[in-house]
Amino acid sequence: MGIFDYFKSKSAPTSASVAKDRLQIIVAHERTKRCQPDYLPKMQQEIIDVIRKYVDVGSEDVQIQLENTDDCSVLELNVTLPEHN
């Protein structure tokens, strides 16, 4: 690396490093989706339907996530309830 590069490197990341960062994020995201069991989207929808039978929430207020660790999978359910009933 030359003297000029030394100053340049401080100002802006190179386009290749931007590419790498973007790829790492999207690939990691797509890999977690790939590992999901086939029934998950349907189960997710049914859980949301059940909750909405009792509470008036929009589908975007219910978040379901499956996280895989080494020896177990955790199904995380997050419901944002409306402030007033």
Binding site: T14, S15, A16, S17, A19, K20, L23, Q24, V27
Partner: peptide, 16 residues
Amino acid sequence: RVALGEMLSVSDVEDI
């Protein structure tokens, strides 16, 4: 182009 930071390097692609 890799040296100029314009192209992903071998190790970048290997990492991903």
